[in-house]
């Protein structure tokens, strides 16, 4: 378990724990926030979901569904190598370019591309969420917390992005997506450069 998660658990354990394993659940909620790649993946998944207003809710559910699959695989002991982290960064970059470029000739395929990116991001973030030092109920409470935290965060970002009404607000979302794409590409290069 990353030291930061242990620190989080230590911070939020109250003197009298009202519900067993609730501190693991809270730590799971906060886990995506302390991994930069996960934060970026969740935000950009929200932007991708907001790109097609009619499908926003469905796309955020798809992200959550993918996340559930990934987290279950992680909880059942499926361990993947560092390729997962690279794939997350690649999805961040591709999703950022997709939202920022908003290419008109991709409109025909926009629904399929959006579902593909949202589900892939969910699965990869789930697979990359590993709590090595936990097992049994504590592990599953942590994973459940991550499912709730990441899904809610993605939903909030998508709803926020969908509030855009003015042209400049749509542009602001695309500019933010271009920044995320740039950060994702640089992080990918750094990871590959070792």
């Amino acid at each position: 378990m990353p030291a930061a998660v242990q620190h989080l658990i230590a911070l939020i354990i109250p003197a009298h724990v009202p519900v067993k394993n609730i501190s693991e659940f809270y730590a799971g909620i906060l886990h995506p926030l302390i991994v930069p790649a996960h934060v970026l993946a969740i935000i950009i998944a929200g932007f991708v979901a907001a790109r097609i207003p009619a499908y926003t809710l469905s796309l955020t559910r798809s992200f959550a569904g993918g996340l559930l699959v990934g987290l279950c695989a992680s909880g059942l002991g499926l361990r993947v190598d560092e390729t997962t982290a690279l794939l997350i960064l690649m999805i961040i970059f591709l999703s950022g370019v997709y939202v920022a470029a908003n290419l008109p000739h991709l409109q025909k395929y926009a629904t399929n591309i959006s579902y593909g990116l949202a589900i892939s991001a969910g699965i990869l973030v789930g697979l990359d969420t590993v709590f090595n030092d936990l097992d049994g109920a504590a592990l599953w409470w942590c994973l459940l917390g991550t499912l709730v935290g990441a899904s809610v965060m993605s939903f909030v970002v998508a709803r926020f992005a969908r509030l855009a009404r003015q042209p400049w607000q749509h542009i602001a979302v695309r500019v933010a997506a271009s920044w995320i794409a740039a950060i994702g590409l640089l992080m990918l290069a750094l990871a590959l450069a070792g």
């Binding site: 920022a100 271009s178 794409a181 740039a182 950060i183 590409l185 640089l186």
Partner: peptide
């Protein structure tokens, strides 16, 4: 007004990759 600030960071990242390697 928005295209140039979108292009700059994305292409700058490509330059950044060249610098990293």
């Amino acid at each position: 007004i928005w295209l140039l600030p979108v292009v700059f960071p994305m292409v700058m990242a490509v330059g950044g990759v060249l610098g990293i390697f």
